[in-house]
Nucleic acid binder design. Structure first.
Lengths: 196, 196
DNA sequence: CCTACCGATCGGTAGG
DNA sequence: CCTACCGATCGGTAGG
């Protein structure tokens, strides 16, 4: 039955995407081969090419699936009824939670964008910009006095620097937990706005 | 004359290292080939192997030369007679200046460590740890009250997150200059210590 | 007898 | 879903 096969098809694609995400994160897009991915999936290289037309197409799926989850977080948080500073702290926690829950996807999203064809790269970049724009709007609303756009951009990027760098050092089993890190990054950003 | 040739030798090695840094930063270690490096130097692949025994050896030189400049900054700043909070702000400015002045080297240092053989990787990591340890010691001295080691580590890593992420977004020709970014990263870190 | 350096090619492996 | 392959290019080395 066609429907049965389609369901199986999507399931197998997801296995490939997950294994590819782990390998791209561990060895880089150039360092991880299609053969590596096939081996991780206990299958052949040709089978991979049955599900994906190219190595880049796998990379796009890894990135796009992940950033869609991040934009979904933004959309959901934006519907909540809280003051902007509380929303900003909540956004930081939600993002950190998703970063940790999909560490390989997150690392690939951060570092392998250049390996994507121009049109697909633009699609990802547009979604990234949406997340940044929402972050800036929360910061603008939370600031005690109007902040100019350039200053707002810098504050937002320093905030994302704190969050995006955590994958290099943060240990979930360590003495400071995920939410505490998110709170620290969010609160220092909010406090800084008061002195701008 | 042997001395004359030795001088030329070092000069040519530096050209190779610089071109390699740019290519590794632009295409990644795996994505940039020895042939690419040779072409950028207007020479042959064999010539590259006359100066370096392997691709990894070039990578090590790129990283090691750069981190030696960073540790030199730490050593120099540590001799200055200023209160710890001022020293911390000065360190942030000096590091940002060096990041911008050697952007390719800095990017390679941040992202290509895994491509180094274990012993050479450890040598770089040891120097990184020295920079982090000095940063933490300044923060500890600048804090109004004793801060526990775990909290200090998190503050230091959030600080380096802000600094290390700048290469993805900071525009030197933009409305906010390099020193201002360094000051913002340093001051928010110092202010955060007061509320810990 | 050395160094500096070339054009050509090695054995293997990449994506497809 | 596999084996058998391709054009090209990889990091590295040969003779001179």
């Amino acid at each position: 039955m066609a429907r049965q096969q389609a369901a199986d098809y999507e399931q197998k694609r997801e296995i490939i995407t997950k294994q590819a995400a782990d390998l791209f994160a561990a060895k880089g897009f150039d360092g991880a081969s299609i053969s590596d991915i096939a081996a991780a999936c206990n299958t052949s290289k040709s089978l991979i090419y049955h599900y994906y037309p190219s190595k880049e197409a796998i990379l796009f799926d890894v990135m796009n699936g992940h950033i869609d989850l991040l934009t979904a977080i933004v959309d959901e948080v934006s519907t909540r009824n809280s003051p902007p500073d509380a929303l900003f702290r909540e956004l930081a926690r939600e993002l950190m939670q998703r970063y940790m829950g999909a560490a390989s996807h997150q690392k690939v999203l951060l570092y392998e964008l250049d390996n994507l064809p121009a049109d697909e790269r633009l699609e990802i970049v547009r979604k990234q910009r949406k997340i940044i724009a929402f972050t800036e709007s929360l910061l603008a609303a939370a600031a005690p006095a109007p902040v100019d756009a350039a200053q707002l951009r810098v504050r937002a990027m320093l905030f994302f620097g704190m969050l995006n760098w955590t994958h290099t050092w943060f240990n979930p089993a360590g003495p400071v937990n995920r939410d505490a890190i998110a709170d620290m990054a969010a609160q220092t950003t909010l406090d800084a706005l008061k002195s701008d």
